[in-house]
């Protein structure tokens, strides 16, 4: 493992606040939400893991007690709300396994009358994986139109236009969502969220 201070880009003499600040900035930059549907999502997930490990190592080194910080990072998975046997569930599985062509074939076979908001959302993902961003945006917008209260669809659409925070173009309305976190991580994320809202 690389030097954790090098990973976070801080000096070993940096204060706890400086370490925390560097960690937060990097966590925002590589957060899995920003890379949903992106062909490089797996690289972003690796970076996120490295950052979390570096932060954990530093905090453990500095405090005598255990402290497990960091976003859990949902990776490139698709949670969704479809049931196990449905074709859309299968499409989500295929997308998680990066089998985009097969996912597109299954989606194309679904008749127009059965195409719900989730169909448009998943088709948007297929297009985003192919880097056809215009088509992806059309499908995501249609999914949001059909199901305006779905946070997953809305976040994905918003994140399409979000730049890396390193460039100062962070226009996304990101939702730091932690699925399956332990209590400690959940509390830390809540704390981060509160700090962001100040």
């Amino acid at each position: 493992m690389r030097d954790p201070y090098q990973v976070l880009g801080v000096n070993p003499n940096a204060t706890d606040d400086e370490v925390k600040k560097a960690y937060r900035e990097l966590a925002k930059k590589y957060h899995p939400d920003t890379y949903v549907g992106n062909p490089l999502a797996d690289l972003a997930a690796e970076k996120m893991k490295e950052i979390n490990e570096a932060y954990d190592t530093i905090t453990k080194q500095r405090a005598s007690g255990n402290r497990s910080g960091g976003y859990s990072g949902g990776g490139n998975g698709y949670s969704g709300n479809t049931s196990g046997g449905s074709p859309l569930y299968r499409v989500r599985e295929l997308l998680s396994a990066n089998r985009v062509t097969e996912a597109e074939t299954i989606l194309s076979r679904i008749p127009n009358s059965e195409r719900n908001a989730e169909w448009y959302f998943l088709m948007g993902h297929v297009m985003a994986r192919k880097n056809w961003l215009g088509e992806a945006r059309k499908y995501f917008e249609q999914a949001c139109k059909m199901d305006p209260y779905n946070a997953e669809y809305r976040n994905t659409l918003n994140n399409m236009a979000s730049h890396s925070t390193a460039g100062g173009y962070n226009t996304s309305a990101r939702n730091d969502d932690c699925g399956g976190c332990d209590m400690c991580t959940g509390l830390l994320c809540a704390n981060l969220l509160c700090n962001c809202c100040r």
Partner: peptide
């Protein structure tokens, strides 16, 4: 603009050199 954002996000995975400022400026 989505393409600009995609350039920026991709580069973020390999940044950390003297060209960062130029690339993020162009992508944005």
């Amino acid at each position: 603009l989505d393409s600009g954002a995609a350039i920026s996000r991709s580069y973020a995975l390999a940044d950390g050199n003297s060209f960062d400022g130029i690339i993020y400026n162009i992508a944005g």
